[in-house]
Design a protein around this nucleic acid. Structure first.
Lengths: 145, 145
DNA sequence: TCCATTACTTATCATATGATAAGTAAAAGG
DNA sequence: CCTTTTACTTATCATATGATAAGTAATGGA
């Protein structure tokens, strides 16, 4: 088994994944949201509630910058802070109602594009795809810790 | 077959791919190269020679900005322009010798990290991985045109 | 031959993002 | 308690990147 060849495949594959996700997510962000802000909202949609520190660590944004962006998003009424029960230093962040609505809409659009993309795929092939994703997720694209 | 569930899997999978590629490529760019410049160099490494228009289109950078970045990279001696035989308006771009060397080094580092990542994977599993990549590449992550 | 189009450049300008320093308040640990 | 650490904020500053307008030169088509 040639690991070098597999690496080549890996590179072109990840490039394809980036291109396709770019195509699928472009234009789903409302006007006044920056890319960074959108990526935070996306993270919130999946992982809320989270603390500022968690956002900072997971999205690789420094604490001051995270604080700034969350402030902007809060000003735009897209997310809200609330206290963490046992530690008054911490702040939980979650999507506000309108933030949630916005992200639902975005995911709907992406979902529609995804369905369009796999519309000609047979039922067995869908099984294959599911299986392939599971393989890659567990064997290659897993967290390293 | 539940396509909604598959979409969920798709989302978490692409997130994983982004995280893993981020981990694998971080710190491989030399000091004075910006992320955008690195991504152009990466593209050059794989597709050279290409015209400015091709870079502009593939990397989604406007022509003026592409021109500017290529100028910076040329100033840094990392790539070079040369004429296209039949059309004197066009310019081919390719990596210079030192640019090539830089990218070889970067890819070596990434390759090493990739090997580290799959070091405990058996020969059969490698086959499975290869197969899984082929499936996804052809059925899901292909160009749409 | 003339006009429209293409390929690229140059010059600004605005802004998103990254980095750093300094401050506050709560918690944790001796 | 007192000190240190954690979690976050505020305030700058620098810079990478995006957007736009205007210009040049070559090409291609009528």
């Amino acid at each position: 088994m040639d690991k070098e060849a597999l690496f080549q495949q890996f590179v072109t594959f990840t490039t394809s994944v980036h291109e396709v996700t770019f195509e699928m997510t472009k234009d789903v962000k409302p006007e006044d949201i920056t890319p960074l802000q959108y990526s935070i909202l996306e993270y919130l949609a999946v992982s809320q509630p989270v603390t500022l520190s968690q956002i900072s660590e997971c999205k690789h944004i420094s604490m001051p910058n995270t604080s700034r962006e969350i402030k902007k998003l809060t000003d735009k009424q897209l997310c809200e802070k609330f206290e963490v029960p046992d530690d008054r230093r911490k702040q939980f962040i979650r999507l506000s109602e309108s933030g949630q609505a916005m992200m639902n809409k975005a995911f709907e659009q992406i979902g529609a594009r995804f369905l369009e993309r796999i519309k000609d795929v047979s039922a067995e092939e869908l099984e294959d795809i599911q299986h392939a994703i599971n393989i890659l997720q567990s064997k290659v694209f897993h967290g390293s810790k």
